[in-house]
């Protein structure tokens, strides 16, 4: 639970963030400023090389900026002693290539993030099974990832992202490896998850149709935010 002072601050503030690679030869982000409020459904759109995935890595505390600051509920991420713990407690990740652990069943994959939570084992089992049930994978709890279709794997990944009840879901091209039908189902599922759980959803995509499912579309080009619009009528891609 956020403290009263934290509650007043926006969920995420990105303050003049720069990120360089190869000793400054590649400038991925050139001073990005953004504010994301609790419960928003945001799409970050841009072509390849626009800096959207770099921004997602920074928001996901997987990387750190060269300059500028990212604040979570008013507290700078650089002040967290353990960003791993921050990720475990506050963030859920959904990746384009699912990134399920191949030796674990669907249920075990959902259990993996819960290692960092103080819940007893039966509680974890129950939660994981419930989450898989909620994403329509209740009948495939003990299936290995290799036995699942792309759409099913992404459903498991969505269940895994919800494992520790995060406040923010970060989805990096979540339909990039799926056919149109599965992509539509996954986007509907994400929308439904957002609606039911009220988490903040930040979705990175290069596909305008996917971006239009969001309430807010941030467009990036050459490492900068070039457009930030509210979508009056988010659409389904199905």
């Amino acid at each position: 639970m956020p403290s009263p002072s934290e509650a007043k601050a926006p969920l995420l503030e990105i303050d003049n963030v720069r990120r360089e690679f190869d000793e400054g030869q590649v400038l991925a982000l050139r001073g990005v400023n953004l504010t994301i409020q609790e419960g928003e459904y945001v799409a970050i759109m841009g072509s390849s090389g626009s800096g959207k995935s770099t921004l997602l890595s920074l928001l996901g505390a997987l990387d750190t900026p060269n300059s500028g600051e990212i604040r979570y509920r008013g507290q700078s991420l650089s002040s967290y002693p353990d960003l791993g713990q921050f990720r475990a407690k506050h963030l859920g990740f959904i990746f384009q290539s699912f990134l399920l652990l191949p030796t674990l069943t669907a249920l075990e994959n959902v259990l993996v993030p819960m290692f960092e939570m103080p819940w007893p084992r039966p509680e974890r089992q129950r939660r994981a099974a419930e989450l898989l049930e909620a994403v329509g994978m209740g009948h495939r709890l003990n299936h290995m990832p290799e036995k699942l279709s792309g759409g099913e794997r992404q459903r498991v990944a969505i269940a895994r992202s919800l494992a520790n009840e995060p406040s923010i879901l970060l989805a990096d091209e979540p339909t990039g490896n799926l056919d149109t039908q599965n992509a539509a189902q996954i986007m509907d599922l994400l929308r439904s998850v957002h609606h039911q759980r009220k988490n903040t959803m930040i979705l990175v995509t290069h596909d305008p149709a996917i971006a239009k499912t969001a309430d807010r579309i941030i467009t990036m080009r050459d490492g900068q935010v070039v457009e930030d619009t509210q979508s009056p009528t988010p659409t389904s891609i199905s």
Partner: peptide, 16 residues
């Protein structure tokens, strides 16, 4: 390496 990266991304402590 990729799987260990996934575990770290999911918030696993480096000590774990």
């Amino acid at each position: 390496t990729r799987e260990i990266g996934i575990l770290l991304a999911l918030g696993w402590k480096r000590s774990r």
